[in-house]
């Protein structure tokens, strides 16, 4: 088996094994069913806001998909590599002709595949649910949209999934370096800060926007700038508000966001590989 084929074979085998691990974990079904229940109950909340039913349903639906995907990424991802090291299951894998980079990439793709599958299943349920609401006239917007799910909404769902591309990479990185609890905390922190990226950048400028700037101000500004470039800019993946109001983004912007997600994840996975390569197991 040549090197390239072996690389692909190993990555796919480890990813498939990781995917199976997630599928056989009962906690996944708890998350999944709870998410479906939240999406289905959105209509009840929609009744409170007169004439805005479908917007509320979409808002809650998209938010649920994002939130439950994030929870699965953090809870499952936080112990992904650490548990393999702690339980020594990694020994029998590394002792095969498997590189540590293949191991990291396989574990990453396994969890990503799981999160994407769950999110896609939620998205399917969400789409069918909307269609039923529109078809039955319960949403009251069938005349405007002709019963079809708007394209910006599809793009919003794709970007929610791409947000997980980044988040799962961060979870894998942190689980390669620290304990599951700390890993979960750091990943959650990265998620929160990632959604505040624009604010962090603006605040770093605001700190210097006064008459007498001290050394401390400069240090804080520099720290915030570094933080801005380190954390993933998850705001760029969040077009829920625009999608709910049927406002699309350009193809170029959409492609740039996807590319940014892939590049950021690749850099984080490379860092995870370098950490694992140096680590004495």
């Amino acid at each position: 088996m040549n090197r390239c084929r072996r690389f692909l074979n190993n990555v796919v085998a480890i990813a498939a094994n990781g995917f199976r691990e997630g599928v056989r974990d009962r906690i996944l079904y708890v998350f999944f069913l709870f998410a479906l229940a939240v999406i289905a109950s959105a209509k009840l909340i929609g009744w409170v806001s007169v004439g805005e039913d479908i917007k509320v349903v979409r808002d809650i639906g998209l938010a649920s998909m994002g939130l439950f995907g994030v929870m699965i990424s953090i809870f499952v991802g936080a112990s992904l590599v650490h548990r393999e090291i702690e339980r020594h299951t990694i020994y029998t894998v590394i002792a095969r002709p498997v590189g540590r980079g293949e191991f990291i990439l396989g574990r990453y793709l396994g969890l990503l595949g799981l999160v994407c599958s769950v999110t896609a299943a939620m998205g399917l349920f969400f789409t069918v649910y909307q269609a039923v609401l529109v078809w039955s006239g319960a949403a009251g917007l069938s005349d405007v949209e002709g019963g079809a799910v708007p394209f910006p909404l599809v793009r919003a769902q794709i970007l929610i999934i791409f947000q997980f591309v980044v988040l799962v990479a961060l979870a894998v990185f942190f689980s390669s370096t620290t304990t599951p609890v700390l890993s979960a905390v750091f990943t959650f922190l990265a998620y929160v800060l990632g959604h505040m990226a624009g604010w962090i950048y603006r605040f770093s400028d605001m700190v210097l926007d006064k008459r007498s700037v001290t050394v401390f101000d400069r240090a804080v500004s520099l720290f915030l700038k570094v933080l801005y470039y380190l954390v993933p800019n998850l705001e760029t993946f969040d077009i829920k508000l625009r999608a709910v109001h049927n406002l699309d983004i350009s193809n170029f912007e959409f492609a740039c966001v996807l590319l940014y997600g892939v590049a950021y994840s690749a850099a984080v996975l490379l860092a995870a590989y370098l950490v694992l390569r140096r680590r004495q197991l």
Binding site: N9, N17, R20, D25, T89, T92, R96
Partner: peptide, 29 residues
Amino acid sequence: RSAVGYSPENPYFYEYLTGTELLDFYGRL
């Protein structure tokens, strides 16, 4: 390592797999 078979002390494997599935996984690797 392709010429080596290794069994660790107190082996601990993926608990969600069956014996057949585990061997399939290692065979694939």
